[in-house]
Amino acid sequence: MNLWEYRDALKAVQAAREQLLELKSERITQSLSGMPAARSREGDRLASQAERIDEARCRLDAAKVEMYAAYARVAAAIAPVQGRAHEILNLRYITGLSMGQIARALHLPRSTVYRLHDRAVRQLK
């Protein structure tokens, strides 16, 4: 079990979202001359841009589906662990906190967080 799976999937969603926003921000406009135009270069570019945006939306949707599935897998994997150890695993692999941040959040020494984390991960194997 890859406990980092959810965090990796979340990064993929963020990257897909950024790509979509970048595509949407590109300025491509079709000139309006009042005359019906045959296939112009601007029209081709506009259609091409719309297609790229649609593909980016599809990639974002697929990344979200994978992220939700990864969340469920990681949450199920750490579910058997109880108490503080479960809280540490959740903060680490779901929330994405560093060991130092976890220690501060739980008001524990960092060495205790590392020890509980290591014991919990061994329990999962």
Rank of each mutant, 00 (worst) to 15 (best):
V121E: 02
Y93C: 10
R122Q: 11
V81K: 00
L97T: 02
T95L: 05
G83V: 04
L108V: 07
L108P: 03
G100D: 05
R84W: 12
I88D: 00
Q82E: 13
E87M: 02
A105W: 03
M99G: 09
D118C: 07
R110M: 09
M99L: 15
A103G: 10
I94A: 04
S98W: 03
G83Q: 06
L89N: 07
H117D: 08
P80N: 00
H86K: 15
L116E: 09
A77M: 08
V113L: 03
L116T: 06
V74H: 01
L91H: 11
R122K: 15
P80S: 00
H86S: 09
L97A: 08
Y93E: 09
R110K: 15
R115F: 04
I102T: 03
Q82S: 09
R115T: 11
A77N: 03
G83E: 03
M99S: 10
A76P: 06
A75I: 08
V121I: 08
I94K: 04
I88F: 04
L108Q: 11
A120M: 04
I102E: 01
N90Y: 15
R84C: 08
R110S: 12
H117S: 05
A77I: 03
A103K: 07
G96R: 06
D118L: 10
S111Y: 15
A105H: 08
Q82W: 08
A76F: 04
R84H: 12
V113G: 01
A120Q: 04
M99V: 15
D118Q: 14
I88R: 04
V121F: 00
A76M: 11
P109K: 14
L108C: 09
L89E: 07
A79R: 14
M99C: 07
V113Q: 05
V113N: 00
P109N: 12
H117G: 07
V74M: 01
A77Y: 06
S98H: 01
I78T: 01
S98Q: 04
A76W: 10
